[in-house]
Design a protein around this nucleic acid. Structure first.
Length: 499
RNA sequence: GGCCCCAUAGUCUAGCGGUUAGGACGUUGCCCUCUCACGGCAGUAACACGGGUUCGAAUCCCGUUGGGGCUGCCA
């Protein structure tokens, strides 16, 4: 089929959640794989629950994920006139009818049917009514006249299951097309828009399967060709229940704030329900290259944060440290001070990136460096026993640091805005760290001790933590003054606890 | 309750009538090592159940069970 066009049609009643993001992604890559177009339509006909901030969130989140519509975004609230003209057509052709039953009356009908153990459907009170002018001035809705011919059924072929799904017409109510306030309902507006905008393939959540026959009826009644349908299974929480807030983060923007990279989220979501052999790592280009509806799973998938974290750490590891610094600064809260974009920060970020699963974690691991001073926490330090020999070592280690040539710590005023500047500075960095390493090893052998024996003491002194980047890098990044300051502080700390 | 859909390890999945049922996350052990990671190696764990069809079934059909969805003047 040529001129393929897909769409994502969220309602702005909440932040873009990962389930929505996944169907958007599927729709987007399906269109792109086939050289088609992808459209975004905001279904804001529920004025009660729709909010501007959610619209903005949805569009920003999609952009963040690189899911970019090819056309201008459509808002259903701008298209009320269009829907009106089609409802007139249906009314004129007797395919829809006015219903004057009050909500209270409907509720009564419903309770009665349930009590009799029958399907709670509209009883059809107004189905054959021919309302006059006066009656039309009273509150009413417009219902679709479902074909009640005995044995009639309505179905469609689902591309995910590759199977025809059919429902008997008497399972389908005379559903409301236009509400009392004159605003069309979902099932009506969705059909008009998909038909008028030339959508060829509708990829959406499983929860719409039972709406589809209603929509097919509308396509037929309006004389439109029905598009193809592909219903993707839902994403469930760890307990197998429908994903909700109690399962933790569900909105895309929360994942951004929590330090996830869009590549990781896209990679995770595409693999949740879709596969390409045994491959796990996909860039957007690769997804587009390989994507096929045939390889989408029919069954629901449970969201697994562990695997997302693995992918996130994979992508963090592959990033240039300067890029990582920018990304961290991009998600920081307003009250946080941004990281400096310099060679020392980059050096630490580079060695810390394999130790962090999220950008937030990476940021935290840089704290010992970013903060001018550090605190020694008893709950960490109490695990270690320090004696006279440690004090003696610290003294000579202090001398060693103080004796280092200032040149080693100097990385000059290199322009980091261009690529060669960065490369040059990384080269200087490598040399500095190498020479610190050599001098430090000399120092150790002169003092008859090994790295293994002394590393933890030094690490604790410099960072206050049991986990840190390699010692040489810390010395380089902190610089002579801060190293000495921290050695002194640590010395005092030990003396204090020994008393 | 009715209707629709789904069913391979804890999780995501490969498989599309004949495989020692493959990969990944997680997890366990070992190696590497200044810590923790990273990396490398090895291990762990699955065809929901019952009937058919067939020489042969994870794969096809039916049922059972379990799960999910819908059953709105929400989308």
């Amino acid at each position: 089929m040529d001129n393929i066009k897909t769409r994502f049609a969220p309602s702005p009643t909440g932040f873009l959640h990962i389930g929505g993001a996944r169907t958007a992604l599927f729709s987007y890559v399906y269109a792109k794989h086939n050289g088609g177009k992808f459209a975004l339509r905001i279904e804001d006909t529920d004025f009660e629950r729709s909010e501007k901030r959610f619209e903005e969130d949805i569009m920003e989140s999609l952009k963040w994920l690189s899911i970019i519509p090819d056309e201008e975004v459509i808002f259903q609230s701008d298209r009320l006139e269009i829907y009106r003209s089609y409802i007139d057509k249906l009314l004129k052709e007797d395919k829809a009818y006015y219903c004057f039953c009050s909500k209270e009356l409907l509720e009564e009908d419903r309770n009665k049917l349930i009590a009799e153990n029958r399907k709670p459907m509209y009883v059809g009170r107004c189905r054959e009514l021919k309302p006059g002018e006066a009656l039309l001035k009273t509150p009413h809705v417009i219902r679709f006249r479902v074909n009640r011919t005995s044995g009639a059924a309505t179905g469609f072929k689902d591309l995910i299951r590759n199977q025809h799904i059919s429902v008997n017409n008497d399972e389908i109510d005379d559903f409301v097309l236009v509400r009392e306030d004159g605003i069309p309902t979902y099932n009506f507006a969705v059909v008009i828009d998909d038909a008028l905008t030339g959508i060829t393939h509708i990829i959406r959540g499983d929860d719409h399967v039972s709406n589809t026959p209603k929509q097919i009826m509308l396509y037929n009644a309006l004389g439109f060709d029905a598009p193809e349908f592909a219903h993707v299974s839902m994403i469930l929480g760890s307990d197998g229940k429908r994903l909700s807030k109690r399962h933790g983060a569900t909105s895309v923007n929360q994942y951004k704030k929590d330090g996830f990279l869009p590549e990781a989220l896209v990679n995770y979501l595409i693999r949740l329900g879709w596969s390409h052999g045994n491959d796990e790592i996909f860039s957007m280009d690769e997804i587009i290259k390989y994507f096929d509806l045939k390889n989408i799973s029919k069954s629901a998938a449970i969201f697994n944060t562990e695997k997302l974290l693995w992918l996130n750490s994979h992508y963090i590891k592959s990033k240039d440290p300067f890029v990582l610094i920018n990304l961290i600064n991009d998600i920081k809260d307003d009250f946080q001070t941004p990281l400096n974009i310099d060679i020392k920060t980059a050096a630490l970020a580079d060695s810390l990136k394999s130790r962090a699963k999220t950008l937030v974690e990476l940021k935290q691991k840089l704290d010992f460096f970013v903060n001018e001073d550090i605190d020694y926490k008893d709950e960490i330090l109490s695990e270690f026993n320090f004696g006279e020999s440690d004090l003696k070592f610290l003294k000579s280690f202090r001398e060693f640091i103080a004796g280092l040539n200032d040149e080693i710590f100097n990385c000059g005023n290199i322009d980091l805005t261009d690529k060669t500047g960065k490369e040059n500075s990384l080269e200087i960095l490598k040399n500095s760290i190498e020479s610190i390493k050599n001098k430090f090893n000399d120092f150790l052998s002169k003092n008859n001790c090994t790295m293994k024996e002394k590393a933890m003491t030094i690490r604790l002194a410099f960072t206050g933590e049991k986990v840190s980047p390699p010692i040489y890098e810390i010395i380089f990044a902190l610089g002579k003054e801060r190293c000495i300051k921290r050695i002194d502080k640590f010395y005092d700390y030990i003396i204090n606890i020994k008393r």
